[in-house]
């Protein structure tokens, strides 16, 4: 990546902005079923906060907080949550991803359980989208080497 030297104003403002962006991303994920948004959009906003870290600071600064091992693990974790909720529905005797049947194991009525199942799916989608976006960004900006290049 081309970076001539660090800039204090951008770094300080990004330090204020990044928690707000991540908070807003969680809001978008959690309110996906009755307002605009959802897992994919929230995951993209969450990934944008990590990309902002790389742009404002450094690749190593971001790797110290969100390492590549965790990133690759999270790609699989989101898919796993998605598939697990679907498979539990099959095991309880309904179709794949038919969340209404989950009221047999969760203490709520079927309508609330349906909203909860959607929330679980969207959390899984959000985690996977965030991790894949960050991984695509790292691969594109460092030509696949995943380390800091010369200026």
């Amino acid at each position: 990546m081309i970076r001539l030297y660090d800039d204090l104003i951008i770094q300080v403002v990004c330090r204020i902005m990044i928690p707000l962006i991540q908070f807003f991303a969680l809001y978008v994920i959690a309110h996906g079923h009755y307002s605009p948004g959802g897992g994919f959009q929230g995951g993209c906003i969450l990934a944008a906060s990590f990309i902002l870290m790389v742009i404002a600071y450094d690749l190593d600064w971001m790797k110290k907080r969100f390492s590549e091992i965790k990133n690759t693990f999270m790609v699989a974790l989101g898919i796993f949550i998605y598939a697990l909720i679907g498979l539990i529905c099959i095991l309880l005797g309904a179709e794949y991803l038919n969340y209404g049947i989950l009221h047999k194991i969760l203490p709520a009525d079927p309508i609330k359980v349906r909203a909860l199942g959607t929330l679980g799916i969207e959390i899984g989608v959000g985690i996977t989208v965030m991790a894949v976006m960050v991984s695509i960004f790292l691969n594109l900006t460092t030509y696949g080497r995943h380390e800091k290049g010369e200026v």
Partner: peptide, 16 residues
Amino acid sequence: FFIFHANPTATHAITK
């Protein structure tokens, strides 16, 4: 609050 902080900083980054 977000616009008030982000917009001048983005302008500063582009100028720099």
